[in-house]
Each structure stands twice: as C-alpha cells, then as structure tokens.
Simulated assay, not measured.
Amino acid sequence: MALLSQQLQRFLLNPVDSNSCSKITHRKNLLIKDRGRCCSAIAIDASSASLTGASGIRWGSTKLQGPREEMEDDVVVLRSDDLDGFLFAAVFDGHAGFSSVKFLRDELYKECVAALQGGLILKGNDFDAVRKALEDAFENADTRLINWLETTGDETESGATATAIFIGSNMLYISHVGDSCLVLSHSGKAKVLTNPHRPYGRNRVSLQEIRRIREAGGWISDGRICGEISVSRAFGDMRYKTKKNEMLQKGVEEGRWSHKFISRVQFSADLVIASPDIYQMAFGSDAEFLILATDGLWDYINSSEAVTFVRNQLRQHGDIQQACEALAQVALDRGSQDNVSIVITDLGRTDWQTLALQQPNFMYELGQAFATIGRLKSEFYTINDSETHMTLHTRSHT
C-alpha cells in the first residue's frame, strides 16, 4: 500500500531498513529450485542474466524472500519457439504453501501454448479468440491443479495468483488473476495495466468482486472472504471451490461460527475463481519498458516511482538485470514484509544514454501520500459479517 519514496517515508514514517540478500544465481537451461532466502528465476536458453529476445527486447528477473519464513513466489521467463515469436513471462504469488506455485510454474505455460495453438492464435490478432484461449488455459490449469492437490495431499489448502504476459514485436497480451500488477513506462510516465482482485475497496473491480462473492453465497469480513483470504481470484484454494462445505464445517469445529450460522449459508458458485482478466495492447513508439511484479513490491513503491527508479537505473548503466535487482532491494529496504518477485522488460525502443536523469518530485509524492491515506480509509472499510449480516444478506436475495 505504501506509495512513497525513501525521502518521503523518512519525512512521514522514519522507516527502518530490513536486511536482505540480493545475490541472484543463473544457469543455462536449468530451473534452480533453491528454497533459501534468494532464488533464481527460470531462464530458458539464457546465456546471461539479461535475456534478449525478438526486436531487441531484453529481460531482467529476480525474486527475494525477504523477512518471510517461506518463499512462496516464483518467476518464469521463457524464450522459445512454442509461441511463434512471442515471448512469455509470468509471476506467481502463493499462499498457504508453495505447492500451487510449483505446479503452475511447470504447467501454466504448457496450457497456454496448447490453447493458443502455439502462437497461431496470437498471430491472428483476433482478440476474442485470444481471450477464449487464455480463459480455457487458466480454467484447465486450475482444474488440473485441484486434482493434483487432492491426489498428492500436499498442502491441499494452498493457492496462487498468476499474471502472465505475451510480448510480440508490437503487441502485448495479458492474462491476469490476483493482486500482482503490470506497469508500462511510456516516455517516463507510468500506466497501470492490471487491476487487483481483492474483496475490499470502492473501486469498480473490487465492488464487482464483492458482489460476485455475495451472489455465490459468501461473505466478506475484515476485507477477507469468509474472514480468511484477501484475494478473490486465484488458482487452487479448493476450500473456496470444491471443498466449501468442508470449509464451513471446519469453521464450526474451530469455533469461528455456529451450526445455526452455517445452516443459513447456501453456496451457488465458487467464492474464489481462476477466471482471468484478458487485455490486449499495441505498443506505441513511446513504450519503453514493462514492470511485472507481485504485491510485495507494489505495497511499498507506487507505479510512478518504480518507473522513475528503473528509468534512472537504465540511464546510468543500461543493465536491465541490475535494475531489476535494485528495484527489489528498494522494496525490502522500505520494510516490505512479503516475498518480492519482479520481471522487467526493456522493449528495445529507447536509447538510454541520451536521456537525462529524472528527479523525484517531493511535493507530488507528498500529495500522493495524503491521497493514499485518504484512499486507505475508504478501501479498508469492511462490513462486520456475523449471523445478523447473513440474515440481511439472505433477505437481500429473496
């Protein structure tokens, strides 16, 4: 949630830096499964830390565990012939264990390639066809994941968000589930390309999610579905899909609600879904780079500040991997309590050496800070769901 520069944070909060590790390991044609404090991203056919793709596109990727006890994020960056010239990247943010992320890291790309008929549908530039293919891919991956969790019995309550991007020479496709975020820099200005799926807030997407959950028979308490999960779209999470009744009974056993309460609950659909938002965007001449990251970054750095930071990094040294690692480190230095995973894509259209450094606008950030404080007051409104709320909820549907 914090959207402030270090200068402004010192002015308002005087934050304390966190210790972290920023060493990144890369191997050609290997997936490094280091569950320690720092891990590398998957980098297929990569001969260096900075991947170079079609039309001069360069990639940097990193992930840091931060102060969390477990690393539940992962990053995939792929350059292959499967998508007929399109490049693929995704970030995954897990919860209640790493199992869902582990499955998606290995399988979501395969589902996308199959649904997109390689790159044939992407090349056809038919958005309706692309949207249908990616919706099918995400649905199939979720169904397979739930079956796999039930079969293995490993971290059966685990879930994961996923935001995947497909980049061509002049076109971008996004398939998004959860609360990670993708930001485009165009001429130094930030453009947010995704909306978080969260069951709180007064923005259009949040209100739609709240309405969908209630119509499915669920409720929101303290900004969480059934008082437990704060993201409304995710893979896995079978207790809010195929195991909803078992979730209710477990709540009774744990004393979180009564038999009388659950007798009034009538589910008509899944509370958490893996249906993605699909976006298409043509790159203009002013498109510079993309930042795709989990909420461990965006809760402490706003989109404009992240764009300015990366832009200055590229102006100084031009190393996309170094810029990526530095941005992740900033989030930890500002006190991020979450795993931080980032992919930065330089679209190869900018001569960084010719650009002047951008200076932080302190007054602008101060205004942003007070706007954020005001927005948080409204976004963290919650309806205290109880038996009384459920009675009102039921009546609203009669």
Rank of each mutant, 00 (worst) to 15 (best):
K110H: 08
V113R: 07
L108A: 07
D128W: 00
G97L: 11
G118C: 10
L78P: 00
E155I: 15
K102D: 14
F138Y: 15
D73A: 14
F92C: 05
I146K: 09
D84I: 00
L145N: 07
L116S: 03
I146H: 07
L83Y: 05
D106I: 12
N147D: 11
G97K: 10
F138H: 10
A96M: 13
T151L: 10
V113L: 05
L149Q: 08
L149T: 10
G153Q: 07
F138M: 01
E107Y: 08
D81L: 13
N125G: 00
R79A: 13
D126L: 08
V91S: 04
R144T: 01
V130W: 08
G124N: 08
L122Q: 06
L87K: 03
S100P: 02
G153C: 01
L108T: 08
A114N: 04
E135P: 02
L104N: 08
V113S: 10
R131K: 14
D93E: 14
F86A: 01
W148G: 11
G97N: 12
A90F: 06
I146L: 03
K110V: 13
N125F: 03
F138N: 00
G97H: 11
N125W: 00
I121K: 14
A115S: 10
G124C: 01
S99W: 01
N147F: 07
G85K: 04
L122K: 06
T143H: 11
E155W: 03
L122E: 06
E111R: 01
E72G: 10
A90V: 06
N147V: 11
D73P: 07
V76M: 04
R131W: 00
A114Y: 04
E69M: 14
L87V: 00
V130H: 03
D136Q: 13
E135V: 03
V130F: 02
V76G: 05
